[in-house]
Amino acid sequence: MYDKHVRSINWHITDKCNYHCAFCFSRRLGEEITNLEDAVKVLEYLKSIGIQRINFAGGEPMLHPLVFDLVRIAKEMGFVTSIVSNGYYLNQESIKKLSPWLDWIGLSVDSCCEEIHFSLGRGNGDHIRHIRNIVPYIHENGIRLKINTVVTKLNFREDMKPLIKELNPIRWKILQALPIKGQNEKEIENYQVSELDFDQFVKMNKDIVLSSGDSPVFETNDDMVDSYLMIGPNGSVIKNSNMEHTVEDMKINGIEEIDSIVDWKKYSHRGGDHWISQ
Rank of each mutant, 00 (worst) to 15 (best):
Y137E: 11
K266A: 02
P61I: 03
I138V: 14
C112F: 15
K265T: 09
L175S: 13
T34M: 10
I180D: 00
S236K: 07
M230C: 07
K41F: 11
L98I: 07
I51H: 07
G59R: 04
D126P: 06
I131P: 04
I276Q: 11
E140M: 04
K165M: 11
V217D: 04
S260I: 02
I134P: 00
V109M: 15
D214S: 12
Q200L: 11
S241L: 13
E31Y: 12
N141H: 11
L167R: 08
S94Q: 03
D126K: 14
L196I: 08
R171K: 15
V217H: 08
I261V: 08
H20Y: 14
F156P: 03
L196D: 13
V40A: 06
T149Q: 06
V150E: 01
N184L: 03
D223H: 14
I128G: 02
R53Q: 15
E166P: 00
D197R: 10
P162I: 11
K251A: 03
N155W: 09
I231C: 04
V237E: 01
I261Y: 15
V67L: 05
K16M: 09
S26V: 11
D214M: 10
I116R: 09
S194R: 12
M250Q: 13
L90C: 04
N18K: 13
E219C: 06
N155R: 13
N148S: 12
D159T: 10
Y267K: 01
E60T: 04
L120H: 07
K266V: 08
F156D: 02
S108W: 14
L154H: 02
F198R: 00
I131C: 07
M160H: 09
F68E: 03
N205V: 12
L70E: 07
R129M: 10
K251Q: 06
N86R: 03
I33P: 00
F79T: 03
R72G: 05
R53W: 13
M62Q: 13
E257F: 11
E37R: 11
D226F: 09
D69L: 01
Y228K: 05
V202A: 02
N155M: 06
L90M: 14
V217Q: 05
E158S: 08
V262Y: 01
Y45F: 09
R27V: 05
E93V: 15
I147S: 11
D110W: 09
R132S: 05
G271F: 10
I147T: 07
N253W: 12
D214L: 12
F68Y: 15
Y45D: 00
Q183L: 01
N168R: 11
I255W: 11
K203A: 05
H12R: 04
E189V: 04
N221K: 14
M224Q: 15
I170C: 07
V209L: 13
S194F: 13
T152D: 14
I105Y: 00
Q192D: 06
I180F: 06
V42G: 09
A39N: 00
L210F: 12
D263T: 04
R7N: 07
L46T: 01
K4T: 08
E44I: 08
A177S: 15
W275R: 01
G235N: 02
N221V: 11
S85N: 05
C21Q: 06
